[in-house]
Write a protein that binds this DNA or RNA. Structure first.
Length: 415
DNA sequence: GAGCCGTGGTT
DNA sequence: TAACCAAGGCT
């Protein structure tokens, strides 16, 4: 930060406004917020715990999605102590469907930190708040300003977009390093008397008027402060590099039922994608498929490194594809689960699911196991009656598989 | 710093 | 449809 001759600061080569303009900006923004702000559940409380819960849930997640989860979560875990001592399966169930599941695990660790280090009372110092697990720069600023009226910036995607247009900032907002620039700017602009409202007003403006697509700067309460709008350069901001496309992956979803009508569920590892969630067994098994010269097109093996579109497998040799898939499934299931199912001669469905960085294509197969009890099931596997399904945390791909099985296969074959 | 980590809504 | 988007943080 340097000082100019005309008494204004320069932040990362961006010239800050004089104090009179800053004050006018605060008033224009807060007047609009007072008039237009939405009535949201977490805006009816000053409890830092409730504010915290809302901020974690709102990370990369829409307001409409969060609202029912917010009520349910506070009902189940009304305070820091109850969160700190919750059972993990109950915790995950409360977050089921929200995504980014490490958020809730980190939140519990933070609750335990607060119990251990702060006598169970949420700390009021931004530096201390930022030490809590799962609380990064944005959330630390949000809780500090909203719950404790501290003049801390809370820079999220909305704020970066708004500021990049106001000041015609060329920094790539997709890069983590850019956030610091915007924090310095917000530190200068933030209203010291209403920091929480100021931060929330910026975010509300970003989500309603200063939107990524089809923004309406002409009706913005701060259009007079918008350099990009005034200069006709709105289309240039924000600068944001493109995200990578999700990598496709093919899986077989194995729906197995024993003679007690129970289904085989598998708990995923405690780190990585969908950690600690339950699904039908998912295998990366490709059948041996040969072309008309008996040349191998796809080699059967577990954990095939490269994804291979199932449709192509059928296309290459449709008349023998299913029996060869069946053969491969039988071998894989015997090896991994020590089970020997009798397969239904049809797929139970086809599920597509897109994650942030992976795209799953799951083909479902149903098998009935009559000799269960001989082999030893892997430690993370369990036969479960569907009556007990509501107690298990399922990711969306699993729910899609189950839905297809019920609606299609089960009805048709009376299983 | 870049990759990992979900899901649902919009265009 | 595919692409893009939404109140990020951790490793």
């Amino acid at each position: 930060m340097t000082k100019n001759t005309n008494d204004t600061k320069t932040i990362y080569a961006i010239e800050m406004w004089p104090i009179e303009k800053i004050k006018a900006f605060r008033k224009a923004l807060l007047d609009w917020y007072d008039k237009e702000k939405r009535d949201l559940p977490w805006r009816r409380t000053n409890d830092p715990y409730c504010i915290w819960v809302s901020e974690i849930m709102l990370q990369q997640t829409r307001v409409d999605t969060v609202i029912p989860y917010y009520y349910n979560f506070l009902n189940k875990f009304p305070d820091i102590a109850s969160l700190a001592t919750a059972h993990e399966d109950v915790l995950l169930k409360a977050w089921e469907g929200l995504g980014y599941y490490s958020r809730v695990k980190n939140m519990q660790k933070a609750a335990q930190q607060i119990v251990a280090d702060y006598n169970g009372v949420f700390p009021e110092d931004p530096k201390e708040i930022a030490k809590l697990k799962g609380i990064g720069p944005y959330t630390a600023g949000a809780v500090s300003s909203i719950a404790f009226q501290l003049p801390e910036p809370a820079v999220d995607g909305n704020v970066m977009r708004v500021m990049s247009r106001l000041f015609e900032i060329d920094a790539d907002i997709a890069k983590p390093a850019s956030r610091k620039i915007f924090e310095e700017i917000v530190r200068e602009l933030i209203d010291p008397d209403r920091p929480g409202d100021f931060n929330q007003a910026l975010m509300d403006l970003g989500s309603s008027i200063c939107t990524p697509l089809n923004p309406r700067p002409e009706i913005s309460p701060i259009k007079a402060f918008n350099a990009a709008y005034q200069h006709g350069t709105m289309h240039l901001y924000p600068v944001k590099s493109k995200a990578k496309k999700p990598v496709p992956m093919n899986l077989q979803g194995i729906i197995l039922q024993n003679k007690d009508k129970e289904f085989l569920l598998e708990k995923r590892p405690k780190t990585g994608l969908l950690a600690d969630f339950w699904t039908f067994p998912l295998l990366q098994v490709e059948p041996v498929v040969t072309d008309r010269e008996n040349k191998i097109v796809v080699q059967t093996e577990l954990l095939v490194a490269e994804a291979y579109p199932t449709e192509e497998v059928h296309d290459k040799n449709p008349e023998i594809a299913f029996s060869q898939i069946e053969e491969a499934l039988t071998a894989a299931v015997a090896a991994k689960y020590q089970l020997h199912p009798i397969w239904l001669k049809a797929e139970t469905g086809s599920v597509n699911h897109v994650f942030s960085h992976i795209k799953w294509h799951i083909t479902g197969y149903y098998g009935r196991v009559l000799d269960a009890g001989n082999g030893t099931l892997p430690e993370n596997c369990k036969w479960v009656s569907e009556h007990d399904f509501p107690a298990y945390a399922f990711p969306v791909p699993q729910q899609k598989m189950w839905q297809q099985f019920q609606q299609n296969t089960r009805k048709e074959f009376n299983l």
